[in-house]
Design a binder for these strands. Structure first.
Lengths: 162, 162
DNA sequence: ACAGTACTGTTCGTTCTCGAATGATCCACC
DNA sequence: GGTGGATCATTCGAGAACGAACAGTACTGT
């Protein structure tokens, strides 16, 4: 059983007289809090060892999954501004994990791809990363996880199309 | 029905041969993405008008709900580092939304409380904020929301106690 | 051909956030 | 009653992320 934290309970009292959607409030509040804690958790336990922060890791992960990508696609997939991606790529390229190239047929674009060193890095890190993912979710029922994942997907789709 | 984005499908292929927990991967990935989009959404639509960013709003909200709080409690509730809170309080105090005071019996501490102006601000903003919360969640079933909220609460409790 | 428009990725300046170091206060103990 | 260690909040410097402005490239219509 989940126990509501004090803030939620007091919040319900405070807004009792207002036309407030409490379920929405609780969901949004917990969503952001969980995300922030997870990020800190992974950066401290798994990523910092390799000198990566969250967005840099996700960038590498996307390239690992998708193969070569143009930067504007990549920034969408990672979920960060293209300007943020640009400096991340500068760093990761300097460290030899990926390469940028300009396709001759479209010289505005910039295609990004992992190097062998980058592939190697992800083959090493990802199992460790996923192990930790599984660890923090242990004890949660598969059906609750499925419901949550689907709800988040719907939410992302709705917010993304704006 | 939720449709899996391409990255998830490709990801499943990539890791098919590894001992990977795919449900955990999908959940963590979507969780962070949704949180980030929600934050941007609210900052752009509701908070920026009042010159607030997410953490500043949550800070005010906590004080609204709890009443006067010591800063170390407040930083826990908001979920940010105490140094981050300190600069947020500097700003909000300068703008007259809250006051700090030192209790005579414990002069190391610092208690924070909303001013009348701060109370007024939240009474204005919060209904608008919650309205938008409800709007982005429209179409989701109450039971799915309840399951998600509980799962997130459990997750937060586990990560918090470390 | 050429001008205008649209699109690409990068750089720049600003803001948010954190951890480490700092300064102030309290308490336990000799 | 003074001293050392613990605890509190703040300041400081560095890193991460963003939007706006920029420079280069491609396409469109005349």
């Amino acid at each position: 059983m989940s126990i509501k934290p004090t803030a939620e309970i007091l919040g319900e009292q405070k807004v009792a007289s207002l036309p407030i959607n409490r379920e929405a409030m609780a969901l949004v509040s917990n969503l952001h809090r969980a995300s922030s804690l997870i990020r800190q958790h992974f950066e401290a336990l798994v990523l910092s060892t390799n000198g990566l922060h969250w967005s840099a890791f996700v960038t590498l992960w996307c390239l690992w999954i998708f193969g070569e990508l143009p930067t504007h696609r990549l920034s969408q997939e990672v979920g960060i501004a293209k300007s943020s991606l640009s400096s991340i790529l500068n760093d990761l390229e300097k460290r030899g994990f990926l390469v940028r190239r300009t396709p001759p047929e479209e010289r505005r674009q910039c295609l990004v791809q992992l190097t062998a060193k980058g592939e190697q890095l992800l083959s090493d890190i990802f199992p460790r990363f996923n192990e930790e993912e599984a660890a923090i979710l242990v004890g949660l029922t598969p059906s609750a996880m499925a419901v949550t994942t689907n709800l988040l997907r719907d939410l992302i789709a709705k917010l993304d199309e704006e």
